[in-house]
């Protein structure tokens, strides 16, 4: 494997966003890119990252390899990079280590680190292709604020999507609260758009603790996409350049 990423910062942000949910992960490398899928310990949330080969330049992966990496270790090493550094990831066949080289774009500084790999026997889940009943795009900072605000009142949030808009509501010991968003187009600042694409009304309840955790990815993308269908896990997607993405799935709370 040899993969050069123009911004080491991208991988750093991804790792910062997921390391409180998942600890040891396989980075599955093949000629289409670098993928990661991991569930949290309680099997309620799942992280799915895809960094497509087009996100790298150049990208070369001659044989499929799984790089088992402890994310705390990876975070430590990525913190050694300067924010504008270029990152090259390298691994040999049947590797013991993954090699990270940070290059400064405007100086001759070159730093190099090896991280020891681990054997991770990871469960892989098949996620069915789903036509979601509601697809909502909204500013990622807005979603983060809603989740944090409602978590002050309750452990869980009800997300209801109708043709009127999307309503986030909660009920707790001190009282209740709700935030409703309608479709909204801002020509000057498309990052502020709220788009709601609905085929049928949806109402689901989710744990706010996990949603707040997912929102650590807000720095990766100005917009977040929420995809919902009744009685299936919520998909929270942060789109990255070149069709790469960071996705989170969260199982709903059902019944009483």
């Amino acid at each position: 494997l040899e993969a050069r990423l123009e911004q080491a910062n991208l991988l750093k942000k991804v790792v910062d966003a997921i390391k409180d949910l998942v600890q040891d992960c396989n980075f599955d490398c093949n000629d289409s890119g670098i993928a990661l899928q991991a569930m949290d310990n309680s099997h309620v949330a799942l992280v799915s990252m895809m960094l497509k080969s087009e996100s790298f330049s150049p990208f070369r992966c001659d044989r499929n390899i799984a790089l088992g990496i402890n994310l705390t270790s990876l975070q430590k090493v990525l913190r050694c990079a300067n924010s504008e550094d270029i990152l090259t990831l390298k691994a040999e066949d049947a590797p013991d280590v993954v090699n990270l080289v940070f290059e400064s774009a405007d100086s001759d500084r070159l730093s190099e680190y090896d991280i020891k790999l681990m054997d991770i026997d990871q469960e892989h889940l098949g996620i069915p292709e789903t036509e979601y009943a509601a697809n909502i795009s909204m500013p990622s900072a807005e979603f983060q604020k809603i989740c944090r605000d409602l978590m002050a009142l309750s452990e869980s949030v009800a997300i209801e999507c109708t043709k009127e808009g999307v309503k986030f509501s909660c009920n707790g010991d001190i009282g209740s609260g709700s935030v409703t968003l309608r479709s909204h187009t801002n020509v000057d600042k498309p990052e502020n758009n709220v788009e709601i694409d609905l085929t049928e009304p949806v109402a689901l309840t989710f744990s706010l603790k996990y949603l707040v955790n997912f929102c650590k990815a807000s720095g990766l993308s100005g917009q977040v996409k929420l995809c919902l269908s009744n009685e299936v896990p919520l998909l929270v997607e942060y789109g990255l350049a070149s069709n790469s993405y960071l996705r989170f799935y969260l199982a709903p709370k059902i019944g009483d």
Partner: peptide
Amino acid sequence: APFQKDLYNFFIKS
């Protein structure tokens, strides 16, 4: 309170 399902209820081990 509603019951927290886990992902095995929805996704298949592959």
